[in-house]
Design a binder for these strands. Structure first.
Lengths: 142, 142
DNA sequence: GCTTGACTTCGAGTGCGCTCGAAGCGGTAC
DNA sequence: GTACCGCTTCGAGCGCACTCGAAGTCAAGC
């Protein structure tokens, strides 16, 4: 397939695919009749994997390391596995950190809920005219 | 406290703190004797919250929206809560997506483990000289 | 009174990951 | 045979979030 169809299929622009080839993330594609890139469907598997690495926060320079190892054959299997294990650990850590943040957000949101309930019981029709004391009491939610 | 100490306490550089004030993420700080910024420890709570938003992937333009609402008092409580709830949903979705990726990574890593075991049983002392057939069999792990 | 060091403003520079436009070529449809 | 569309290369530009350097001010310690 041509670059345009590949772009449609993998959800990138042709520009981005050429950029990836240029920097070495994608192998140099065979040119049909000497000009246009011709792709085999198998490239999609690799692109999806790259996308997985990208969306899990791996910077391009690390993807490049992996891509280069991949290009050199089975002798680098072990090194590639280690690279992935390192990344796996980073992703796991990120998940943990995000879960902590989720709890913190929940607490904050709950604080707002309480503040709103207090405001509506003290001044049901016009909460914007609440004075100093109430303001001080809701300060934690800010 | 002065900007240097605040920087030390919150783990940012003074440059970044000034930048945040410039764009409106931090309130304009009171200048002692007309020149140097003087901070109250309470600013740390706000900075930590900003950091939480940042590390969970909120772009600065959204933090700015929140910061501006915060500056206008209790009338915007509801809007701020909605903003946080939206962000909470985004963080939860991100966690889900990362967990999927974690499984995918585990599968891939397991594939490498298998490939290495096969390689070492076929050619225990020099795995780099394995030939074509073995290579085809390990292709999935690439 | 002079050194030191932390502060001030302003604007330019950096690294990342694309994103786009210009200028030109080539194959297919009518 | 020509209009059109998608492809080619190359290099510049962009949005984000800082990051840094220059040039100058100011207060405290010796």
């Amino acid at each position: 397939m041509k670059i345009g169809e590949l772009a449609r299929r993998c959800g990138m622009t042709a520009h981005t695919i050429r950029y990836y080839e240029r920097i070495g993330l994608l192998p140099y594609a065979h040119r049909d009749g000497g000009q246009q890139r011709e792709y085999d469907a198998s490239i999609l598997v690799w692109i999806e994997f790259l996308d997985r690495l990208k969306t899990t926060g791996m910077p391009i320079r690390d993807m490049l390391r992996y891509a280069k190892l991949r290009g050199t054959g089975d002798a680098t299997n072990r090194e590639r596995r280690l690279l992935l294990e390192e990344h796996r650990a980073a992703v796991a850590a990120r998940i943990t950190s995000l879960r902590e943040s989720l709890s913190a957000l929940d607490a904050k949101i709950a604080g707002y809920g309480e503040a709103e309930r207090r405001l509506s019981s003290h001044a049901p029709s016009n909460p914007s005219e609440t004075g100093r004391p109430l303001r001080a009491r809701t300060a934690r939610a800010r």
